[in-house]
Nucleic acid binder design. Structure first.
Length: 980
RNA sequence: GGGUGAUUAGCUCAGUGGUAGAGCGCUUCGUUCACAUCGAAGAUGUCGGGAGUUCGAAUCUCUCAUCACCCA
C-alpha cells in the first residue's frame, strides 16, 4: 500500500466520523479505566436556530481537546451536548416563516397551534448545528443530547425528557423560598416583540439626537428672576423675569406622562421654586416642582421633567418625591390617551393632545414639537449625542414600561455565588474575569424573568380571586394591599397566586386554601376547563367553584439554561449521572455570556442543589476577523467554519484555533494561518509516509528505555519531554503552549532532524532494526499526543496499521523526562549545532549547495572527537561534507568555525569570498563583543556579585568565558585572513 | 463618566525579574529517493513615551499618550 503525498481531508473525514460513531467512541464513560475519576464538561447549548460560527468552532475545539485528552488518559468522561430553545430568536424565525409563506400570523393561529408549529420547525430545521459540530470533530455524547424545552406540554414524541419539569421545579423552589416575586415595576420593554427583556438584553447605542427645551408655565401667577448674565466670578449680574420654567428633554413625547419637574436642591436659579407648580402644556396637568439631586445643574437647563412611567431615573425620582406614574403608551409604543384613566385623572387635555392618541411615539414626538413651536412654548433645540437603549434582538429602541413582571431576587442569590469564587470552590480563568464577575454580582439588580412570548416555559402560576381572612372579598384595589404573600393586583382586582410544579398540585393547594378561607368546600377549575374535567360536582351544601387562570407569560430563556448543569443530568430526580458527574469539571465559554449564563448558573445551582456547578470556568476570547473586527453578518466579514473545514480540513482549523488560544486576548483569524497548519498536517502525513516506505511498523513490545543508539535515545528523550510539557500546558488550559510544543516537536525535532538522522541509520544493517522500531514508536507517540488537536489525520494514520483499538481510545503516555538520556542529549545537541554552523557558513560563503567539501578539525575535546566519530555519517550527509581530517592549524584561506568550544575549519579557499568572510567574522565578533561587554559590566558591578543569586553570577562568568574564547578563535581567523 | 485590558519584528501575536521569541510575509539558494502544502540560509526590534523600585525590568510600581472592550 502506498500513501498519497497529501492527506485528503475531505474524503477521509466522513469515514473517520462514521468510524467513531459506530464504535460509540464518545459515549459517557467510553475508555474509562477501572476506578477512573469523572471528567465532565457541558456544551454551552447553541440556539436551536443557530448554525456553527467561528465562536462555536473555537469554543468547541478547546472543549474537545480537553475531552479527548482526558478520555485517552482513562478518565470517565462525559461531554454533555444539547440545544437551547432560544425563546425570542426561535419565535422570531417561525413568525418570519409564517409571514413568508403567507400563512396566518401567530395571533390568528392561537397559542397552542403556534407552539405546535414551532415544534414542527424544530423537527425539520432545528439542530443542524449538531451535525456541523461533527464535522469539526466534537466528541460529545450525542446519545444524551438534551434540549431546554424537552418534556414541555405539546412536545412531540422524541422530545421527552426532564428539562421542563426541572425548570418548573426550579421556579417553584425559588418561589417557595421567597426568591421570586412579582411586581409592578419599570422594565425594559421591547415594542417590536412586545415583551419585557432583562437588563442584559439591552444594548446601549450612541445616536445623534436633540435636546429640546420646553417652557412649562408657572401656576398661580408665579414669576421669578432668572439670571441671564454673570460676572467673572460667576455671580449673576442681570436677570429677567420669567413666568415659566424651561425643562430640557431628549424625549418630548413622554411629556404626556409627566408628573413633576425636578431641580437640584442647591441650584440657586431654581431652589426657591421647589414646592410651586407648573402647568403641563397640552395636558393641563398640574406638576409639582421637586428638589432632587438627579437634576444636574450642568446639564440642559438644570430643570428636568419627570416621567416616572417612561424613564428609569425618573422612576427613582418619582418614588422619592411621591409622584404618580402615568403610562401613556401601549405595548407597541403607541400613544394611548383615550380611555387611559391614569392619564385623564387630573388632566384637561387639549384637542391637540387627544389627537396624538394611537400615534407611534416618534410621530407623536414630531407633532408635539410642532405644536410647541406654534404655541410658543418651544424654547429651543440643541444637538446632542446620547446613548439610546436598544433590544439586542429586535434592534429597536427600548421603551421603559410599567408592567407587572416576575423577578428573581438576584441580590440574595448572588451572595453564595460570590462566596464560591472568592473561596476558590470555583476558579475563574483567566483571573482578570473574576473582577468582572464580582463587580457585576455585587451590583446586581432584580432579574426580570417573565417574557410575553409563547415559545418557552409557561410560568407555573395560576391566579384565583382573592379572599381575605374571614372570607371577605375586597371590593376594590384602592385600599392597601393585603398583608399576605402571593396576592397581586390584576385588572383592578386582588388575586391570589398559586404556584406549583403541575396543575393537580396547584388544584389541591388552591382547594385547601379556599376551603380554609370560605369555610366550605371549593372546587377549582382551570380556565377553559369544563365542569367534567374539573372532576367533581358539588356534593355538599355550600360547595362553590373557583376558576384559576394561568399566567400566560413564559420564562426568560436564560432562566432555563441557568439550570443546564443539573437539568442535563436528570435533576430533579436523583440520578446516577447527577451523583457521578456533578459538579462538572470545567466550563469553557466566551466572556460575552459571563453574566447571561455563567453567573446565573452559579446562583441557581448553588441555591437549588447547594453545590457549585463547575470547578473551573475557562473564559476564552472572541474570534475576530483579520482586521480585528468582530465577525458579523452585517459586516460580511464572517468566516464560516464549515467552509474553512471544506477547504483546509477540520484538523487545520482546530489546530489554528488552539494555537491562537492564548488566554485573555481576542484572536484574529486569517486564512494564511490556517493554511500553515494544514501544511503541518501534511508534514506529519509525509513523515508517516516516509516511515511506511522504510518498513517501520509499530511493535507493541517496544521498550523505549532499552534503545541503544544515540540518535534514537535522543528523540525518545525529546518525546518524553513533550509529554510533560503538553500535560502541564493542558492542565493549565494553555492551549497555545500545548499546540506550540507539538508543532515544534513534530516539525522541528522529528521531521527536521530525526527523519534525516534515520536515513543513514536505515542504510546500516546493524542499526536499521532498532531505528525502524524507534521511528514507528516516535511517530505513534506523535499521533497519540496530537490526536486531541488533530483527531482526523491522526486517526487516519493510526489506522494504517493493525491496531487493537482506535486512536481515540489509545492510552495517553505517562513517561516523561525519565526518558531523557543526558549523554545522548548532549551529543546530539553538539552534532546538530555543528551541522547548523557548517550550513550557515556554506550559505554565507556562497559554497554551491551541491558541493561536497572537507571538514578539518582543529581543537576538539575528547567528547567532541568521540561525538564526531560516532556521528560522522550524519555530518557528512546533512552538512554535505566529503572528508574529515584532523589538522594542526588552519590552512590559508580556510573558514574557521566554533561550535561550543570546538574549533573546526572548512578549507574552501577556491570558493571563498574574502570580503564575505571578513564581513562574516566581523559581524560575529561584534555580536560577541557586545555580549561580552554586557557581561563584563555586570560582573564588574560589586552589587551584582553581592546580591544576585550565586547561580546567576556563575552563569554569567561561564558565559563570559565562553564568549571570550570564541571571540579569540574568530580574531585569530580574522588575522589569518589578512595574510591572503 | 466608571471599569478592564492592550501597546514587543513588515503583519498577527507568544513571552510573570536573569542571553528578546514563533508563525506568516520578505531576500538568497536549492527540485539529494517523506513532503515544493518542501528544504537550507538570511535580514528585520532604543519591547508606546517618561519616571521609579531592583544588582538586574519587555516583565513590578507610578505617570502620560494611543487603541479596544465592558458598564452607566
Amino acid at each position: 500500500m502506498s500513501m498519497d503525498k497529501t492527506f485528503d481531508a475531505r474524503a477521509v473525514e466522513p469515514r473517520i466520523i462514521a468510524l467513531w460513531e459506530s464504535a460509540s467512541a464518545f459515549a459517557m464513560g467510553a475508555n474509562a479505566r477501572e476506578g477512573a475519576e469523572p471528567f465532565s464538561i457541558l456544551l454551552p447549548p447553541p440556539n436551536v436556530t443557530g448554525s456553527l460560527h467561528m465562536g462555536h468552532a473555537f469554543n468547541h475545539t478547546l472543549m474537545d481537546i480537553l475531552a479527548r485528552w482526558r478520555r485517552m488518559q482513562g478518565y470517565d468522561v462525559l461531554w454533555q451536548p444539547g440545544l437551547d430553545h432560544a425563546g425570542i430568536a426561535t419565535q422570531m424565525v417561525v413568525e418570519r416563516e409564517l409571514a413568508k409563506a403567507g400563512e396566518p400570523d401567530r395571533r390568528e393561529m392561537g397559542r397552542e397551534a403556534f407552539v405546535r408549529r414551532v415544534w414542527e420547525w424544530k423537527a425539520e430545521s432545528g439542530g443542524t448545528i449538531l451535525e456541523q459540530c461533527k464535522r469539526l470533530g466534537d466528541s460529545f455524547d450525542l446519545s444524551r443530547n438534551a434540549f431546554t424545552m424537552s418534556g414541555a406540554p405539546g412536545a412531540p414524541e422524541g422530545e421527552e425528557g426532564n428539562f421542563h419539569d426541572a425548570v418548573l421545579r426550579a421556579f417553584v423552589t425559588l418561589y417557595e423560598r421567597g426568591l421570586i416575586f412579582r411586581g409592578k415595576r419599570l422594565v425594559n420593554w421591547d415594542p417590536h416583540f412586545e415583551t419585557a427583556i432583562s437588563d442584559l438584553e439591552v444594548e446601549q447605542v450612541e445616536e445623534k439626537g436633540n435636546l429640546w427645551r420646553l417652557r412649562y408655565p408657572l401656576e398661580n401667577g408665579e414669576t421669578y428672576e432668572h439670571p441671564v448674565e454673570w460676572d467673572e466670578e460667576g455671580r449673576p449680574t442681570r436677570f429677567e423675569t420669567r413666568d415659566y420654567l424651561t425643562v430640557a428633554t431628549t424625549r418630548p413625547e413622554t411629556m404626556l406622562g409627566d408628573t413633576g419637574v425636578a431641580v437640584h436642591p442647591d441650584d440657586p436659579r431654581y431652589r426657591h421654586l421647589v414646592g410651586k407648580t407648573v402647568r403641563l402644556p397640552l395636558v393641563n396637568r398640574s406638576l409639582p416642582i421637586v428638589a432632587d439631586e438627579h437634576a444636574d445643574p450642568e446639564k440642559g437647563t438644570g430643570a428636568v421633567k419627570i416621567t416616572p412611567a417612561h424613564d428609569f431615573n425618573d422612576w427613582e425620582v418619582g418614588s422619592r418625591a411621591g409622584l404618580r406614574a402615568i403610562n401613556v403608551m401601549d405595548t407597541r409604543a403607541r400613544i394611548t390617551l383615550e380611555g387611559n384613566d391614569d392619564f385623564l385623572d387630573g388632566a384637561e387635555p387639549t384637542p391637540e393632545a387627544m389627537a396624538l392618541h394611537g400615534l407611534d411615539r416618534y410621530v407623536a414626538r414630531e407633532r408635539i414639537i410642532a405644536v410647541a413651536r406654534e404655541e410658543g412654548w418651544l424654547d429651543g433645540i440643541d444637538e446632542e449625542i446620547h446613548t439610546v437603549p436598544h433590544g439586542d434582538r429586535s434592534k429597536v429602541a427600548i421603551e421603559p414600561f410599567l408592567t407587572d413582571q416576575w423577578f428573581v431576587d438576584a441580590k440574595t442569590l448572588a451572595g453564595p455565588a460570590l462566596e464560591a469564587v472568592r473561596t476558590g470552590r470555583t476558579r475563574i480563568l483567566p483571573e482578570q474575569h473574576e473582577k468582572t464577575y464580582f463587580h457585576w454580582l455585587e451590583n446586581i439588580e432584580p432579574w426580570c424573568i417573565s417574557r410575553q412570548l409563547w415559545w418557552g416555559h409557561q410560568i407555573p402560576v395560576w391566579y384565583g380571586e382573592y379572599v381575605g381572612r374571614g372570607g371577605v372579598v375586597p371590593h376594590s384595589t384602592r385600599g392597601p394591599a393585603p398583608d399576605e404573600t402571593g396576592v397581586f393586583q390584576e385588572h383592578g382586582r386582588w388575586v391570589k397566586a398559586f404556584c406549583g410544579p403541575d396543575a393537580e398540585t396547584v388544584r389541591e393547594d388552591a382547594e385547601n386554601w379556599y376551603r380554609a378561607r370560605l369555610g366550605h368546600r371549593v372546587i377549582v377549575r382551570f380556565e377553559g376547563e369544563s365542569e367534567d374535567e374539573a372532576g367533581a360536582y358539588p356534593e355538599e351544601r355550600g360547595t362553590s367553584f373557583v376558576t384559576l387562570t394561568r399566567d400566560p407569560d413564559v420564562l426568560d430563556t436564560w432562566f432555563s439554561s441557568g439550570i443546564w448543569p443539573i437539568g442535563t443530568l436528570g435533576w430533579p430526580e436523583d440520578t446516577p449521572e447527577l451523583r457521578r458527574y456533578y459538579p462538572t469539571s470545567v466550563l469553557v465559554t466566551g466572556f460575552d455570556i459571563l453574566f447571561f449564563w455563567v453567573a446565573r448558573m452559579m446562583m441557581m445551582q448553588l441555591e437549588l442543589v447547594g453545590e457549585v456547578p463547575f470547578r473551573d470556568v475557562y473564559i476564552h476570547a472572541l474570534v475576530r476577523d483579520e482586521k480585528g473586527k468582530k465577525m458579523s453578518k452585517s459586516l460580511g466579514n464572517v468566516l464560516d467554519p464549515i467552509e474553512l473545514i471544506d477547504e483546509y480540513g477540520a484538523d487545520a482549523v482546530r489546530f489554528t484555533l488552539a494555537s491562537m488560544a492564548a488566554m485573555g486576548r481576542d484572536l484574529k483569524l486569517s486564512r494564511d494561518r490556517i493554511a500553515g497548519y494544514r501544511n503541518f498536517g501534511t508534514k506529519l502525513w509525509n513523515a508517516a509516509r516516509f516511515a511506511e516506505m522504510n518498513g517501520c511498523h509499530p511493535d507493541p513490545a517496544f521498550d523505549p528505555a532499552r534503545v541503544t543508539l544515540t540518535a534514537n535515545r535522543w528523540i525518545i528523550g525529546e518525546t518524553g519531554r513533550l509529554r510533560e510539557t503538553l500535560d502541564e500546558a493542558l492542565a493549565g488550559y494553555r492551549f497555545n503552549d500545548a499546540a506550540g510544543a507539538l508543532y515544534a516537536h513534530v516539525w522541528g525535532k522529528v521531521c527536521d532532524w530525526y527523519v534525516e538522522l534515520a536515513k543513514p541509520l536505515f542504510a546500516d544493517e546493524a542499526k536499521a532494526p532498532e531505528t525502524r522500531a524507534t521511528m514507528a514508536w516516535v511517530l505513534d507517540q506523535c499521533l497519540v499526543m496530537l490526536h486531541p488537536f488533530m483527531p482526523f489525520v491522526t486517526e487516519a494514520l493510526w489506522g494504517q496499521h493493525d491496531r487493537a483499538r482506535l486512536l481515540v481510545h489509545a492510552d495517553w503516555p505517562t513517561y516523561g523526562a525519565d526518558l531523557v538520556d543526558a549523554e545522548a542529549d548532549a551529543e546530539m545537541g553538539w552534532v546538530i549545532a555543528l551541522i547548523d554552523e557548517i550550513r550557515s557558513v556554506r550559505a554565507q560563503m556562497g559554497v554551491p549547495a551541491g558541493a561536497r567539501i572537507t571538514l578539518l578539525t582543529l581543537d576538539l575535546s575528547e567528547a567532541q572527537q568521540a561525538a564526531l566519530a560516532a556521528n560522522r555519517a550524519f555530518v557528512e550527509r546533512l552538512a554535505r561534507i566529503e572528508r574529515m581530517e584532523a589538522a594542526a592549524e588552519a590552512p590559508k584561506g580556510a573558514v574557521t568555525l566554533t561550535v561550543r568550544g570546538a574549533t573546526l575549519c572548512l578549507p574552501i579557499a577556491d570558493v571563498i569570498d574574502i570580503e564575505a568572510e571578513r564581513a562574516r567574522l566581523a559581524k560575529a565578533i561584534a555580536r560577541l563583543e557586545k555580549e561580552a561587554k554586557g557581561l563584563r559590566g555586570k560582573l564588574g558591578n560589586e552589587a551584582f556579585i553581592a546580591r544576585a543569586p550565586e547561580d546567576v553570577v556563575d552563569e554569567a562568568r561561564a558565559r563570559l568565558e565562553a564568549t571570550e574564547e570564541e571571540m579569540a578563535i574568530l580574531r585569530a581567523a580574522e588575522a589569518r585572513l589578512a595574510d591572503l
